[in-house]
């Protein structure tokens, strides 16, 4: 064993390492180098716009004129604004109804697609179609489907003798809400279905065989095997689904621009209208900033939903 004196001598005789060599070869510094591009990317494209948005929301900036700090005045103003509160209501209605239906239908479709069937690969590809089509394009298609005069739905129902005059899909507030929700569901199902399908395929076949021999019916297998095994994936999918739906803009803007009478204005579309079309960047930014608490709540919900279940943890002996 080396004495203290020997150790001190060893340190003195070791060649001094200059700073540049350390920066090049030290593990910790190396880690920093590797992290830098990603960090710069995040700062530039995520943190900066978010910070700027929040800053704008506490100023009275307009397009073409720098604003000054006005504190929470924008938010006080919005609090008095019935249109803003209508958009909050719309956003919640849109998100809750669409997410629940997307989940239910997506799960149903995933379970269906998980069965053996002919042309499985092709059917799965077809299911993905709504997700592949550009949003604006599908919005235009829906716009046409919902057209007051030429709607194919109205036409079919008329031909079948079920209605006598065309349905005013996008002209009447509640009809318009239902219509845009339906379009969103159509567009969102593939994401839910395909992701849940991927989750379903990770469930070992032998569990179903064991359940079959244990005497489980198809519903009991779903209830006691499929669903509990799928919960971690469901948490991820539904978090993303809720975030996408809550912040949806394209579909609404292309179909209704928030009309009729602001009945389909979501917070995102209202923010765009006030900030870009109306020029009130500060006020628009304030609407966007007001979305942050809700989105944070959704993320926190998923954070706890994503916590590994007790049964997924365990000893590391396998």
């Amino acid at each position: 064993m080396a004495t203290d004196a020997e150790r001190v001598r060893a340190q003195e005789t070791a060649a001094p390492i200059d700073l540049w060599t350390r920066l090049k070869y030290d593990r910790n510094w190396l880690g920093l180098w590797f992290m830098l591009p990603a960090a710069a990317f995040l700062l530039l494209f995520l943190t900066y716009p978010l910070g700027l948005g929040i800053w704008l929301s506490v100023t009275d900036t307009r397009i073409g004129r720098d604003g000054v700090f006005i504190g929470l005045e924008n938010f006080e103003w919005l609090n008095q604004d019935p249109v803003f509160w209508l958009s909050v209501f719309n956003t919640f209605l849109y998100t809750i109804v669409a997410s629940i239906l997307k989940f239910a239908l997506g799960l149903y479709l995933a379970v269906l697609l998980n069965n053996h069937m002919p042309w499985k690969a092709i059917i799965r590809a077809i299911v993905l179609l709504p997700f592949i089509v550009p949003t604006v394009l599908s919005a235009i298609a829906f716009w046409w489907i919902y057209d007051t005069q030429f709607s194919i739905i109205s036409w079919t129902l008329t031909e079948l003798g079920l209605i006598s005059e065309n349905i005013n899909f996008l002209g009447e507030p509640n009809n318009a809400r239902a219509s845009v929700i339906a379009a969103n569901i159509w567009r969102g199902i593939p994401f839910v279905a395909i992701t849940l399908l991927a989750g379903l395929q990770t469930i070992p076949q032998s569990l179903y065989e064991a359940a079959t021999i244990d005497g489980a019916s198809r519903w009991q297998m779903f209830r006691h095997v499929t669903y509990p095994m799928l919960t971690p994936i469901i948490a991820v999918v539904m978090t993303f689904s809720v975030l996408f739906t809550f912040t949806d803009f394209q579909l609404i803007y292309a179909m209704t621009r928030g009309g009729p009478a602001n009945a389909t204005h979501l917070m995102a579309t209202l923010s765009y209208q006030r900030a870009i079309m109306g020029g009130n960047l500060g006020e628009g930014a304030a609407i966007s900033t007001a979305m942050i608490p809700f989105l944070l709540a959704a993320i926190l919900f998923s954070w706890f939903g994503l916590q590994r279940r007790k049964w997924q943890q365990g000893e590391s002996d396998d």
Binding site: P204, A210, T212, D214, V225, M229, W311
Partner: peptide, 20 residues
């Protein structure tokens, strides 16, 4: 059907329900 055959099976990978 399997459940009415009154047989029990032990699988190679045990097929235990991980969440139970």
């Amino acid at each position: 059907p399997p459940k009415e055959r009154d047989v029990a099976m032990v699988f190679q990978n045990y097929a235990l329900y991980p969440h139970m």
